[in-house]
C-alpha cells in the first residue's frame, strides 16, 4: 500500500466513525473548512490515528497539514515506521 493509500484509509476510518460517507478523496482534498470539515477535535483524533498507523504524526512535530497531500508529503519526507 502506498503512503497515500494508507493516509486515505486512516481518514476514511475517521469519517466512518463520524457516520459520514467516505467520498472519493485525493491529495488535494482539504482537511478543514471547505473540505472535509474537520474541527480541532477531529484533528486531534486524526493525529492519534496517524500516530497509531505510522508511529508518529505531523501535528506532534509542529506541522499543520492542510490537505491529504500535506500529510503524505510529511511521511514521504521523513519515512516513518513501516507496518
Amino acid at each position: 500500500m502506498s503512503t497515500e493509500q494508507r493516509v486515505v484509509k486512516v481518514v476514511q476510518g475517521l469519517l466512518a466513525r463520524q457516520k459520514r460517507s467516505a467520498d472519493a478523496m485525493n491529495a488535494k482534498t482539504l482537511l478543514y473548512a471547505g473540505g472535509l470539515g474537520f474541527d480541532s477535535l477531529a484533528a486531534a483524533e486524526l493525529s492519534t490515528l496517524l500516530e497509531m498507523e505510522f508511529g508518529k504524526d505531523p501535528y506532534s512535530d509542529g506541522k499543520v497539514p492542510q490537505t491529504i497531500g500535506d500529510i503524505v508529503g510529511y511521511y514521504d519526507a521523513s519515512p516513518a515506521d513501516k507496518k
Binding site: S40, L41, A43, A44, T48, Y59
Partner: peptide, 10 residues
C-alpha cells in the same frame, strides 16, 4: 486523558 498536540488531551 491521553496527551494530544492539538487539544492538549483527548
Amino acid at each position: 486523558g491521553k496527551k494530544n498536540p492539538i487539544t492538549g488531551q483527548i
